[in-house]
Amino acid sequence: MAKLVAVTIVVIAILSAIPIITHTWPGNISVGLPQDISTHGYLIDEQYADTMIEAGVSFLASQLLLAYFIWRFSSYKPGDKIKKFPGGATGLVVAAFLLVGTEVLALGVFGTKAWGSVYFTPPSPNAMAVQAQAGQFAFYFRYPGPDGTFGPIHPNLVSEASANFFGLDTTNDPDSKDDIVTAEMAIPVNREIHLLMHSKDMGHSFYVPELRIQQDFVPGLDVSVHFTATKIGKYEIVCTQLCGLGHYNMKAYLEVMSQEDFDKWLKQQAALQ
């Protein structure tokens, strides 16, 4: 019975590792990290890979050790004496401090670099500003228009019924007149984007796995992130913060375009306002 437990643990440990290593689930389903289309993403991916190696080795080593000990020490004769682990508890504690301690210290220090690339470097002054507004259960986006300035948001004017999603007062606020509101987010490739995040109602989140960005929208507190997309294509922005019954269907598309296509798109959108 004990030997079977040991074998089962080994089999489970190995089976568990296979999809991680091959990035595939039976039926050719890809379960690895999605492709990276951001300039900072490689730092996160490297950090992820390092962590996976350390975690994978720790996982396999400890499961296999557990299995081996179960296999080995469940069969004994009545007269057998118990044995003490070489080095005793002190050895193990020192080992834990040294091995795990260095491991986590390394992860912590290098991880800070990746984190800093997203949050500690300010956006460059010529980054393109886009505002995202999250509400139950759709995202809307706003481009400042030719004047480069966003008009103020008036909560009492917010109206889904009349499609004034941002609560703009286009008659009285000159800055709002040329603002372009869209349901899709288009951005030019290889241009830094400064995303200003505003929540209309609940907590929401902006998650684009390919962009290696996830950031909550905080009601009452406008936060921002910045990123540069490097690959033209159509990606999905999904909400990851439970915001109500339609949470599962709260999404928008992110279109990364060439600069010319983007300019054309923005002109089209401006005409539709």
């Binding site: 509400g135 139950q136 259960f137 759709a138 889904e160 019924a161 499609a163 109500g244 019954l245 339609g246």
Partner: peptide, 12 residues
Amino acid sequence: IRVQCNIHPWMQ
């Protein structure tokens, strides 16, 4: 009474 769909906020 105004009625709307929150999943599709344009549905009014």
